[in-house]
C-alpha cells in the first residue's frame, strides 16, 4: 500500500486548548490507506479530547485533519466508530441495527439489504437477524456493532477500547475476527487502547502518546508476523518496549 502517494488521513499540528489549558500539543501523523494503526497512551492522557478532535466534536484550536486530502466533513465522508459501550439500539433487531448506518446515509434499500446480509454472514449472525439486542450475549452484541461499522464501508474506522471489559478468551477471539475482517476489506483503522498488549497484538504501527499535554512520544513499526503469539520473545520484547515508554504506575 506504499505506492499510494497520498495518505488516507493526515493530521497536521493538531492543537487543542481549553481556555489556557493545553491538552493536545502539536500532534502530526499520517495514516496510510488500509493501515491498522494503534494508539496507546498513559491513563489520563488526552485520549478523549484527541478522539473528539479527530471526529470534529471539538474544533481544534490549531492545526487540521485531512481525510483523502480534504478537511473532514462528516456529511460527505464516512467515518465509523466503535466504542466500548455496545451502543446498539435496543428497539431494533440485529438486522436493523446492522443496517442502521446505511439507513442514515440514505443508501438505497436493496443495496443496503445486500450489504447487511453480507456482513451478517461474515460475523456469523445470519441466524440471529431477527433477535433483539437484549437477547444476545456480549460477544454477539460486539459483533453486531462491528458488522454495523464495516457495513457502511467506512473511509476510516475509529475504535476506542472496544474490548476493555471482556473476558480474555473472548477478547482474543474478537481481536482475531477484527483482524480478519480488516484484512478482507482493507479498511483503514485507528484503534485506541490503554492495553499495551492489545496494541502490540493488533497494530501495524503503534503510536505512543505522552501524558497531558498530549503529544506523540514515539511511533513504532510492528511487523511481527500474524497470527501473533503473545508469549513469543519478539512479542514480549516489543511489549516491554512500549510499556517502558508509557509506564507511570
Amino acid at each position: 500500500m506504499q505506492e499510494n502517494k497520498q495518505p488516507k488521513v493526515q493530521v497536521r499540528n493538531l492543537t487543542k486548548k481549553f481556555g489556557d489549558l493545553l491538552v493536545l500539543d502539536n500532534i502530526s501523523f499520517d495514516v496510510q490507506a488500509g493501515e491498522f494503526l494503534c494508539i496507546v497512551g498513559p491513563t489520563g492522557c488526552g485520549k478523549t479530547t484527541f478522539l473528539n478532535s479527530l471526529t470534529k466534536l471539538y474544533e481544534p484550536t490549531a492545526g487540521e485533519i485531512l481525510l483523502d486530502g480534504q478537511p473532514v466533513d462528516l456529511k460527505k465522508q464516512n467515518i465509523a466508530y466503535i466504542f466500548q459501550e455496545y451502543s446498539t439500539m435496543p428497539w431494533l433487531t440485529v438486522e436493523e441495527n446492522v443496517g442502521f448506518g446505511l439507513d442514515i446515509k440514505g443508501v438505497e434499500k436493496s443495496k443496503a439489504q445486500a450489504l447487511v446480509n453480507e456482513y451478517l454472514d461474515i460475523v456469523g449472525l445470519t441466524k440471529y437477524r431477527k433477535y433483539y439486542p437484549d437477547q444476545l450475549s456480549a460477544s454477539m452484541l460486539q459483533r453486531v456493532v462491528i458488522a454495523r461499522a464495516f457495513a457502511t464501508q467506512p473511509d476510516l474506522l475509529l475504535m476506542d477500547e472496544p474490548y476493555g471489559q471482556l473476558d480474555i478468551q473472548l477478547r482474543y477471539h474478537l481481536e482475531d475476527e477484527l483482524i480478519s475482517l480488516w484484512q478482507r476489506t482493507g479498511t483503514t483503522v485507528i484503534f485506541i487502547t490503554h492495553n499495551i498488549e492489545e496494541a502490540v497484538y493488533l497494530g501495524q504501527r503503534i503510536l505512543v502518546l505522552t501524558n497531558k499535554p498530549t503529544s506523540i512520544k514515539q511511533a513504532i513499526d510492528n511487523d511481527l508476523p500474524r497470527p501473533r503469539d503473545i508469549a513469543s520473545p519478539d512479542f514480549v520484547k516489543l511489549r516491554n518496549e512500549v510499556t517502558d515508554l508509557i509506564k507511570w504506575w
Binding site: S137, S139, M140, D167, Q169, L170, Y172, H173, A231, N240
Partner: peptide, 21 residues
C-alpha cells in the same frame, strides 16, 4: 506479567477456559 513462567501458566489456564460466544 511477561515472565516466561507467567506466560506459560497464562496460556495453560486460558486454554482450559470455556469460550462463551
Amino acid at each position: 506479567y511477561v515472565d516466561p513462567e507467567f506466560l506459560r501458566l497464562r496460556q495453560l489456564i486460558t486454554d482450559n477456559m470455556d469460550l462463551t460466544l
